[in-house]
Design a protein around this nucleic acid. Structure first.
Length: 481
RNA sequence: GGCGCCGUAGCCAAGUGGUAAGGCAGAGGUCUGCAAAACCUCUAUUCGUCGGUUCGAUUCCGACCGGCGCCUCCA
């Protein structure tokens, strides 16, 4: 089995061929820390997490870089509005982002370069471009990239260069450019910029980096320093970044290095709400912390997202999330059963073959352009058959329970959709144990009315009971809506 | 105007030139003191509409209807 990924450059699913396997350099465009990232942003970060995990599970050694954009129009505006410095404003949101990632079980990148801390690399890149004559200093004190000097401009987005102007928004600084389509590498600092600490001195004038510049400068610096290359194996982001962000990254990077910037470009589709993209602008957004406060298990969010292929739009609604929560519960039940039945022996029962099938099918699905929906189908097929075998007594060593459990857990290192362990309040636990003992006594005495009263009493405190041959188990009911 | 995406059961959605995965919800059954969980069975003669190509199309082509995205700083 070999991994194939959809490359936006060619609009085709192609075999994945990193430059120097098993090493894979992966750059993913991170958040702008002007506010909390919303669930739409996290759909992209979760698709990238799936990519990262599947690569690692397949034996690749991934070096993952995710930038943090802590200087741009929005961060500056927000800091000014709050009357704080840029750094004071972005730091809490940066921390919040890390918290949200941890909540959603997103594997941390190996490097999180922050734009404000890598300005020297950006200045160096601008100088490189100026020296090559593909960038120019404008009368307004900014530096622009001259796209006419880059003949393949528009290759990624497939926007015809002659048509870029039509219908496009008219930039206020257009008059300062040689060509309206040119984009800013370095923006002259305004008094507003300096007021919040968003100005840096550079040989070509005091200013601040353009948005696109940071990704090129930081990614190239990171991989050049470590691996001596200036080509990324993978570069990923949301579809809205294809143009202009990634197009411009390609232009400035390749003009500077003469090397392809990224071998393969991946773009994730939007998370929609009633058909329209989730966006701060539209006010139809939900943050990760909103869900966490509602008691939503991150596993349910992951499962919901895995149900839809990353290149398809996904419409978010409560019913779909509830469905995912039920699915997660089912996975957790099966996992618990296998755990209990795993035994210590090896065995060669039906579960051994089932375990092999699960791992094979999940890997095959993900190898095919990260088809998480098909991986889930394989997973739930596994659950159904495993439960059936366990029902029929294929337990413990002779049934291969250990093999099935191991396979499930290996698959979970990639999908990671098992329910979070509940946090148990010790005081509640001792009370529950006491009531359970009373109920057990009533059941032994065939006083089922009393037993049911106790069940109802526990239910009222959010505790569900499960009578099994091995005794009564209890757990917290799903947090209410 | 340009580039591009989507329209499959109540909901979320896979998929293929040869006759519709999976999850949730629903119905019936087995099990259970009762439940829960689990298992079994059932739930789209049909894949937006209309044409075309084909032995055969949901899958290819065209038109149309409906929804959406990008077109200089949005994941």
């Amino acid at each position: 089995m070999t991994l194939a990924l959809h490359n936006t450059l060619t609009r085709a699913v192609e075999p994945f061929q990193p430059f120097a396997p098993p090493r894979v350099t992966l750059y993913t465009c991170g958040p702008t820390v002007w506010n909390y990232a919303h669930l739409g942003n996290f759909r992209t970060f979760l698709f990238e997490d799936l990519l990262r995990r599947h690569l690692e599970s397949s034996g690749y050694e991934v070096f993952h870089i995710m930038n943090l954009t802590d200087v741009d129009d929005r961060t500056i505006k927000a800091a000014a509005a709050a009357g704080t410095s840029l750094a004071e404003h972005t730091e809490p949101y940066t921390q919040a982002f890390f918290e949200d990632c941890a909540y959603l079980r997103i594997r941390p990148a190996h490097l999180y370069p922050r734009a404000t801390q890598e300005v020297p690399a950006m200045i160096a890149l601008v100088e490189r471009l100026l020296a090559k004559g593909v960038a120019y200093r404008s009368e307004d004190g900014s530096v622009y990239f001259a796209i006419e000097k880059f003949p393949t401009y528009g290759r990624l987005s497939r926007l015809d260069r002659r048509e870029l102007k039509i219908g496009a928004r008219v930039a206020s600084d257009e008059y300062a450019k040689d060509d309206p389509r040119d984009f800013a590498l370095w923006k002259k600092a305004t008094p507003e910029d300096d007021a919040v600490g968003a100005g840096w001195d550079a040989p070509f004038g005091r200013g601040r980096p353009g948005w696109h510049l940071e990704c090129s400068a930081m990614s190239l610096q990171a991989i050049h320093a470590r691996f001596g290359v200036e080509t990324l194996d993978l570069h990923a982001g949301g579809v809205d970044l294809i143009f202009p962000h990634h197009e411009d990254e390609i232009a400035q990077s390749e003009a500077a290095t003469g090397q392809p910037f990224a071998r393969c470009w991946l773009h994730g589709e939007f998370l929609n709400v009633r058909g329209t993209k989730m966006s701060k602008r539209f006010g139809n957004f939900l943050t990760a912390r909103d869900l966490r406060e509602q008691g939503v298990d991150a596993a349910a969010v992951r499962l919901l997202f895995w149900q839809t292929h990353y290149r398809q739009p996904l419409d978010f609604n409560d019913a779909a999330l509830d469905g995912a929560r039920e699915g997660v519960k089912r996975l957790g039940e099966c996992h618990a059963r296998l755990h209990a039945a795993a035994g210590t022996g090896r065995g060669d029962g039906p579960l051994v073959a089932l375990a092999r099938t699960l791992e094979h099918d999940v890997a095959a699905a993900l190898d095919d352009d990260l088809s998480a929906p098909r991986a889930l189908a394989a997973l739930f097929e596994f659950v159904r058959v495993a439960n059936r075998e366990l029902d029929h007594g294929a337990s413990g060593a002779e049934g291969g329970g250990a093999a099935a459990l191991a396979a499930l857990e290996r698959v979970m290192t990639v999908l990671d959709v098992l329910p979070s362990p509940p946090t148990v309040d010790p005081a509640l636990a001792s009370w529950v144990e006491e009531r359970l003992a009373a109920r057990e006594k009533a059941r032994k005495a065939k006083d089922f009315a009393a037993a049911d009263r106790i069940r109802a009493e526990l239910k009222a405190r959010g505790v569900d009971l499960d009578d099994t041959p091995a005794g009564t188990k209890w757990r917290h009911a799903r947090p209410g809506p």
